[in-house]
């Protein structure tokens, strides 16, 4: 249970999140990838504050990160719903009206 172990979990979650964002054909799956990335960041903050500074500063930052993730998910899903009403699809490849 050393710092490196938490960092390994964190980098694996981050890479998987990036993979999901790059490959998925559905906006909600992309949101799931973003949530994985945010979780890996929060885990990093908490691990560093636990092992290096040994106080609750990192936990506070992770707490604010969770709050911002909640706000982000709410706005993301409302955008997805209005895109779905407009295009009847949430595939990012099909919602390309602004493309020249």
């Amino acid at each position: 249970m050393r710092l490196e172990h938490y960092l390994y979990i964190s980098i694996i979650l981050f890479s998987l999140g990036v993979f999901a964002v790059l490959t998925r054909r559905n906006a909600i799956s992309i949101l799931m990838g973003v949530e994985l990335i945010l979780n890996s960041c929060n885990l990093n903050f908490v691990a560093f504050s636990s092992f290096i500074t040994r106080d609750i500063t990192g936990q506070m930052i992770a707490l604010f990160g969770i709050v911002l993730a909640a706000a982000e998910a709410a706005v993301f899903l409302s955008i997805i719903l209005s895109i779905y009403n407009e295009f009847s699809s949430i595939n990012p490849d099909q919602t390309d009206t602004l493309k020249g």
């Binding site: 909600i28 949101l31 949530e35 979780n39 998910a73 899903l77 719903l81 779905y84 949430i90």
Partner: peptide
């Protein structure tokens, strides 16, 4: 996350 964001995600899946 589990109580809020995940329910929102499932809601989005069902709606779309």
């Amino acid at each position: 996350y589990v109580g809020g964001i995940l329910v929102l995600v499932l809601f989005g899946v069902m709606m779309t």
